[in-house]
């Protein structure tokens, strides 16, 4: 079995699992799946931008924006669940492509700082508009718009599944070459007839829409939002820890990383939670060591292991790589 069929098979299994747990799972399994799916979608969305050379330090901007759009469109306009999610999707896409236009040719660290500023800017705006957002006190989702636990959980599973499918579809098409070329050398990419701004707008629209959608579903899930929760730096950090831990710039890396992050986080909290602060310390240490010893992420480590095992099993194959 080659890696491609293996990957497709694994992908199919993951899709079936995350889509069936909201239907059949126990409450705790449903909760873990919800959090994992949330992180999968965020991580894949972050990785999409990173693959085009755009390191985002402000994914919480999209996340918080989506959350507020959902709460406002439900409370003020009475939009039902799915419609307000579509609104948050659109808002994220608009904000993403707008940010791409504003940042223009900024690269690397300059681009990253701009995204960080965008997130902080949105947070301040949310605080300063108490009439609309409830300001620092926050805003509750009107309980009559809550669509029920099952719908919310299923929504998140679907969001993660669709995000992964989009990322997979992109990795199959020719545009992923354009993104890789932009990441490697934007000047050279331009010489070959690639218009970087167009691709930037497109990838940031997709990435922003996904992160915003996750924020929207999370807002339904929590039922309450204030600027500190919506534009939490924690969102930004976990949505890049997961792809880095799993394997940056790859398709499966962010997914593996998201599962691992949730698993490590839960395991340390459950086993060490009774001693104040130790669980976070251990969680942090595990992350540091895994990045030290698995620079290509978990995915890279696994494929190295796989290659070494098949090399020792069939030494004749070594000759022609």
């Amino acid at each position: 079995m080659n890696t491609r069929t293996f990957g497709l098979l694994l992908g199919a299994v993951v899709l079936i699992v995350i889509l069936s747990i909201p239907v059949f799972g126990s409450p705790s399994a449903v909760d873990i799946t919800f959090r994992t799916c949330s992180l999968i979608a965020l991580a894949v969305s972050w990785n999409l931008m990173a693959s085009a050379g755009l390191i985002s330090l402000g994914h919480s901007a999209f996340f918080g924006l989506g959350g507020y759009v959902v709460i406002l469109s439900a409370n003020l306009l009475g939009m039902p669940f799915w419609i307000s999610l579509i609104a948050s999707l659109a808002a994220g896409a608009l904000f993403g492509s707008g940010l791409a236009l504003i940042t223009g040719r900024l690269r690397g660290i300059y681009f990253a700082i701009t995204t960080l500023a965008a997130s902080e800017g949105l947070r301040v705006i949310a605080v300063m508009l108490p009439a609309l957002t409830g300001g620092a006190k926050g805003a509750f989702l009107d309980a009559k718009y809550y669509p029920g636990t099952f719908t919310v959980n299923m929504g998140m599973s679907l969001a993660a599944a669709v995000t992964c499918l989009i990322a997979w579809r992109m990795s199959q098409s020719r545009i992923h070459y354009a993104f890789r070329a932009m990441r490697a050398n934007e000047g050279a990419a331009q010489m070959l007839g690639i218009y970087p701004l167009k691709f930037r707008c497109a990838i940031m629209a997709v990435s922003g829409a996904v992160a915003s959608l996750v924020g929207g579903i999370e807002a339904f899930h929590g039922g309450y939002l204030d600027p500190a929760i919506a534009f939490d730096l924690h969102i930004t950090i976990t949505s890049q820890i997961a792809p880095i831990l799993g394997g940056i710039y790859t398709l499966s890396g962010p997914i593996i990383g998201a599962v691992a992050t949730v698993f490590i986080g839960d395991a340390t909290r459950l086993s060490l939670g009774h001693i104040e602060g130790v669980s976070l310390l251990v969680f942090g240490l595990i992350l540091v060591f895994s990045i030290l010893y698995l620079p290509q992420g978990i995915r890279g480590g696994l494929s190295d292991l796989w290659r070494r095992r098949s090399a020792t099993a069939e030494p004749t194959k070594m000759a022609k790589p």
């Binding site: 070459y177 490697a184 050279a188 010489m191 070959l192 007839g193």
Partner: peptide, 30 residues
């Protein structure tokens, strides 16, 4: 590039992590 002006730049600027085939593929992006 669409008009038919193509440049092989100074210092070559090939994509080092791309295979030869992928580099050429990118050349025909337009």
């Amino acid at each position: 590039v669409e008009l038919g002006i193509c440049l092989s730049p100074e210092g070559r600027q090939v994509f080092p992590n791309f295979s030869v085939y992928e580099n050429l593929l990118l050349g025909s992006f337009s």
